[in-house]
Design a binder for these strands. Structure first.
Lengths: 101, 101
DNA sequence: TAGGTATTTAGGTAAATGCCTAAATTTGTG
DNA sequence: CACAAATTTAGGCATTTACCTAAATACCTA
């Protein structure tokens, strides 16, 4: 785990929020958008952009960045890209801070 | 704890390094500089700047910033400002990431 | 008060980040 | 293939961050 890369990818309020939203999609996204929500896939880019009230390209890049830092996992299915949290990486970050920072 | 503020203050390699150095000063600073090292105070600004190979003003601002984020504790004594880690805050950050992020 | 050491504050430039719109690409469908 | 929907890539402007040097301040001691 590249600590600096991970931390940088968390150093923005919107990106922190996205992690929170993806932790419990039903609590944060409109029901219509979760009609066929699958935990194994996550939520697609445009739904996240809508929730963030930001442009799709901006959010697309954020998500890609967070996936590169391994905080999210991307799955392309048909024309959608779904993102979900990488819980193991988040726990690994917590341990790294706890024990090695 | 203001998560974003804390994370921003960690999103720079030098600032991460400083935390590591202060975790075990004897392992990282020259012995001469630790002649009268006291764990309750920490290490002074110019010794940290020297170790970082950066200008004193730059490091002074970094340290102040990290203290504002509560990651470090500053103590002014005579003409020196000493900084040490705030272990409790670092552990709090780890738990926050583990349980709430 | 004068002079010295340590630190902080100011001010400036270069690079990185935040976010947007427009254009290009990917993938499904008639 | 042509067209639509979702996403990504490109390009651009504004703000923030990374650093520096110079100047100001704090605090010592003679």
């Amino acid at each position: 785990m590249k600590l600096l890369e991970v931390i940088k990818s968390l150093s923005n309020q919107t990106r922190l929020d996205i992690l929170t939203w993806l932790k419990d999609p039903f609590a944060y996204f409109a029901a219509e958008e979760l009609d066929d929500y699958k935990p194994s896939l996550g939520v697609c880019v445009s739904d996240i952009a809508k929730k963030a009230k930001m442009s799709i390209p901006t959010v697309s890049v954020y998500l890609k960045n967070m996936a590169a830092a391994d905080l999210l996992v991307a799955t392309r299915k048909d024309q959608w890209t779904y993102y979900k949290r990488n819980e193991a990486a988040i726990q690994q970050l917590a341990s790294l801070i706890k024990d090695s920072l």
